[in-house]
Amino acid sequence: MRIQTEEESVSRPPDLVIEPTSGWRQPLALGDLWHYRELFYFLTWRDVKVRYKQTVLGAVWALLQPLGTMVLFAWIFGRVARLPSDGLPYPVFAFAGLIPWIFFSNALGSAGNSLVGSSHLITKVYFPRILIPASAVLAGLVDLGISLGGIGGLMAWYGIRPTWWLLMLPLLVGMTVLLALGVGLWLSALHVRFRDIRYLIPFLLQIWLFATPILYPRSVLPERYQWLSQLNPLSGLIEAYRVALLGGGAPLPFDWPGLGLSAVGTMLLLITAIYGFRRMERTFADLV
């Protein structure tokens, strides 16, 4: 069934070669990602669009979720336990930490379950699988934007003025996205193989919430445990958010080394996650 001769076929290299891959030395296939950028957009758009379908309150939930949590914790920790809050009103203090936290925890939750939830796609059509958890993480940005508007209102209520530190915000959001992506990629890929992950995620999030200075300032930790807190890449990030958002309201120093440590931790997690994901990716369709 040859249409033309062998010789002519040599003249053009194949557009694609399908071969078994093995080991950790996977190419990153960035060209492939670029090729599928429109699908990435559509998947993210779908996740945003579907998020609050058939809810009565719709996107108001993006505001109610951190607000409700804040009110609850403000009462427990601010009133009952009387935790210090670096001289800030406790509700604002907690809210500033809860905004990135809720984005982060929603992102891990939805990214972690995303691959298994998309088994119908994975077994029927090819595209870089990384787009699935990545779009799940990015879709949360809309909520983050809405709740950032909310803290504006709260700051106005307490008379706290924004400062130039606010310009740090895009950088911090970017770092949060990358960190969520790093952890989310690990969780989603492991979830395909180990369904235990589904039960592990809520537990992990609960521990992480209390291991991070979100509801309390890091200063309440004993001196000898400070370094431990610094190992958590989310710690420096949350504290930086607080300065960026509320900087004018309290004598908070901007902790550059802390943020630097977060950045290093984030990059380490992300790079290992991408390689780990690429390595596990090729068995997804057989396992999911």
Binding site: R12, P14, L16, A285
Partner: peptide, 21 residues
């Protein structure tokens, strides 16, 4: 078909594709 459409990888062998699939 799953291998040709890159949903799953072959264990062995090689496929050359000329054109968009």
């Amino acid at each position: 078909l799953k291998i040709l459409s890159r949903i799953t990888e072959p264990t062995r062998g090689r496929i050359e594709v000329y054109g968009r699939v």
